[in-house]
Structure formats: structure tokens, C-alpha cells
Design a protein around this nucleic acid. Structure first.
Length: 122
RNA sequence: GCUACAAGCCAGGUCAUCGAUCCCGCGCUUCCAGUGGGGUAGGAAAGUCCGGACAGCACAGAGCCAUGCACCGGUGAAGAGCCGGGUUCCGUGAAAGCGGAAACAGACAGUGCCACAGAAAAUGACUACCGUACGGGAAACCGUCCGGCAAAGGUGAAAACGUGGGGUAAGAGCCCACGGAGGGUUUGGGUGACCAGAUCUUCGGGUAAACCUUGCAUGCUGAAAUGCCAUGUAUAGUACCGAUUGAGGGCGGCUCGUCCGAGGUACAGGGUAGGCAGCUUGAGCCCGUUGGGUAACUAACGGGACAGAUCAAUGAUGACCCUCGACAGAAUCCGGCUUAUCGGCUUGUAGCAUUU
RNA sequence: GGUCCCGUAGUUUAAUGGAUAAAACGAGCGUUUCCUAAACGCUUGAUCCCAGUUCGAUUCUGGGCGGGACUA
């Protein structure tokens, strides 16, 4: 069966308030190139936001590129996240920051995301 | 054909799969899910350096301050932009000319400053030159005092109109000729800056991106503006000021005028920070034809295309082709300027080579 | 998005338009000590970049680059 690869507005972290709360009280996890803030909540579903610091990427073009790669990697692999959440019977808010200094390519972002999942759910 | 310069233009393409956002249609009337179609980064989107539109501030008054601009004409909504012209300077040249550059009002309104060097850096006098007197000496001449003078010397970034002649004790725009510069009056040409000339007069630098003077202009704040809806709290506490004897405020500052005016300021603390409008089609842009203008630009007609997100879309992956892809990402919108930029195309100018 | 400020040795500060750019701390070397510290002496090293104004710019003007603050 064809997996659902859509990435509608509801799946994104939309509220500034929610983002502030996530940064204030969410848990954080690091891998070598990523940092994730996350917060489990009882209501089902997942909302995700992405970011790239202007400290590491001075040009807006590069920041856009990084954010697009992360978003795309999540979109194509979102079933993996949903399955894990299904096991825990919870929903979550998630914010992923790219903290590496070099502009990544798509496959390295994909690998990094898989490491993140393992770290968060282990 | 190659090279250099200038101006203008383009800013990899195609296919497949999976997405995002906006608009239109279908969907059950609306909404939602779903579904079909279409649009979706730039020449600089950048810097925020100028100029506006738009919005708000009760009216947007007077004076002073402050700020900005600074040859003339045109263009345009406007400008520190653009176009044309003038002047000055630079390059080239025998010259005519050609090419380039310029924050280009005033140093004859006033004040300040000009290191080192030099006598002196602005009513100049060290050496030198000249004269009288006195002293010495046979004389040439030397010394001292007083006076004259500003040609010569050296210093410096800059030294007191230049050259030649007359003149004189020695000299000097002191006088004359030619030339240069400033000011007044005036004639002709030009819309004007200015140019050409006449006449009188003056001749001691530089610096205004030093203060300043003159002329002109400017109300301020910026889409986190602003309007509306929703949610929520505390109409509470402490201190000071004030209520017609007026606190405080009225969007650069001060003063005056005028208007509003019953609350204001500080401390501590509490709450909200969600949505809609503004928001994308406008003094618009591009192409073509004709007309006007040296040009910038403009008029008429015909045709064409227009991103609209709001935690923030405009993308990802794969394949193929080629010249192997630079700088770079909209956030209210326009007109300019500046800066970044791989490669390519067109036109013009100059030089070189080749062919006829 | 908007408004504003600042760039001087490795760091923190100075310097009327006059250049040999000053000081403290630091760093390096030396003296002293059995060794270290302290002390003393010596040395090192800078005006963010490009133009312009001026005889002459750290300073004045324009442009660029970099950093920072404020703003519902």
C-alpha cells in the first residue's frame, strides 16, 4: 500500500506560543549535526518545526536550503515517527535544529534523522 | 577573425515520481475532507543610501535652534536620480579637436587654523642692497647708530601678480608695454549657467568634507504603521504631584500662542501576545508601430504577463542533454543609486592580422 | 521589517588634522633562584577595507565590510 507522504499545515508547528513553550520546557536531544526539542502530550498527532541558525549560515539561501532538506527528510520518513508514537499512545511537538556548520546533502540529513528517532524513543 | 573598452540583454533545459502554498471550478447550500485545472522567487529579491505612495498623530500656527541641499536648463509623482548644456581641471595633440573627471554658492562679510623648516605663514624683513652721521684707514673698504628698500638668497605644500623696459642712492605696479586675476558699471548674444566686448578700479596665500555667511527646502513616526473582532486580568497595592490657584499631554528640541484636560509619574505585581483587514493591479512593467524631443523622456494605438507566505510556501529525489550552471531568496508597494556576480549573446568604437 | 550606535597592539582603554600612534595587562627573551612565583630589564605587536577633501587624515566626507543595541 502506498504510504501517506503528505505534509499538510496541521502537521506543522504553527503557534509561536507553542514554540516558546517547547524551548522553555521541552526536552532536548543532540546528535552530531542535529538538536531536537520535543514534548510528549496525551492528544494524538505530531507537529514539527525546523530551523537553521543564522549564526552558522549567514545567507538566507543556505538557511532555506537546510530547512527544506530537513522538512523533506521528515516528510518521506514520517511513518517511522508515527509508528513509534503509536506504540507509546501519545502525540508530540517537535522542533529540529540543524547545528552543523557545513551545508549538508540529502542522504546525510536522512541518516541523521534516523539517529534522532532512535535517541528520542530509546 | 582576435583583443580591449562602452552600452544593452539572458541568468541551464527536458522528463518522471513525491510534496507545499494561493486562486478558480466540482463537491451537499456554507465550512471541512476529497478531487480537476492554473499561478508560484531576482537582476540585483541584498545594502537600507536617496526619493515617494499609503497610514496614523486634535489643528499642524509663529519665532529660534536643528537637519539637508548647493553651476544652468530639461525630465519626472519626487529626488543627492537621469538627460542635455556651461565652467574648471586632467590626458592626447603643433593646433583645431577628441576622450575623461568634478560635493561646482561665498575665502572681497567675520572668526579660527596653517606642524617641521624658515627672517617671516599674513599689514613679512634674517642676510643682502642703498644713504646720512660718527669712528678707523693712505686708499679700496671696515665697524657702529639712525633711516630707506623689498629686486636677490635659502626654507617650505604654499612666500606677497608674471615677463620685458624705464626709473632710482638702492629699489619697488613707482611708471610704461604685453599678459593674468578680482570687483563695479555697461553693450551684444543666450530661456539660463555663461560667452564676447567696452570702460572705471584694484592687485597680500591656502583652508568652508574648520566655525560660518547667503539662498532654497523640510512637521514627525513607520506595516511590529493603522483599523476591527476575540481572549484575559486588578475598577486592586505603595510613594509623589494635581483637580480651574490646571498635574499632564498634544509625535525632533526650546519659547510663545492655541487646544484638550482629570488624572499623571515611579516602583512592585498581574494579564494578553489569537484572528481578520492593511496584502498585492500599481504615479505600474514589458514588447511593437506611429508622432514629438539632440537626449532623458513622452503621447496615441495594439498586444502580453502579473508570487503573496505569516514560524513563514515557491521544494526534494532520479535520469538524460549541453556551453557543466555565478551572485544569491520576496515579507506593504513603487522610482532610482550602490554593492555581489560563472558564463553567454547583440550593437558600437579603437587596434592588429588575413582575403579580395 | 524598522531605528540607531561602534570598529586602534592578543585584551582593555588613550591620542587639537602634524606619524617615531601612548599606557596597562598579556606574550617572548634575559637577570635573580636549587626550581617556581614575585621583582627588575629588554623585545614583540595595531588605526577594518576602498576612494575623496587637505601640504598632511586614527581624526573630516562618501561607499563597502564586520560587530552590537533598541523596537508589538
Amino acid at each position: 500500500m502506498q504510504p501517506d507522504l503528505r505534509f499538510p499545515r496541521q502537521a506543522r508547528l504553527k503557534s509561536r506560543k507553542a514554540i516558546d513553550a517547547l524551548f522553555q520546557s521541552g526536552k532536548r536531544v543532540h546528535t552530531e549535526d542535529f538538536r531536537a526539542f520535543y514534548l510528549f502530550r496525551p492528544s494524538p498527532g505530531i507537529q514539527i518545526g525546523v530551523g537553521a541558525p543564522s549564526r552558522n549560515f549567514k545567507k538566507a539561501v543556505d538557511r532555506n536550503r537546510v530547512k527544506r532538506l530537513i522538512r523533506e527528510a521528515y516528510r518521506l520518513d514520517q511513518q517511522r515517527w508515527k509508528d513509534r508514537l503509536q506504540e507509546k499512545q501519545q502525540g508530540m511537538d517537535l522542533f529540529i535544529l540543524y547545528t552543523g556548520k557545513e551545508l549538508p546533502d540529502f542522504s546525510s540529513v536522512q541518516k541523521g534523522m534516523i539517529k534522532l528517532i532512535d535517541k528520542i524513543f530509546s
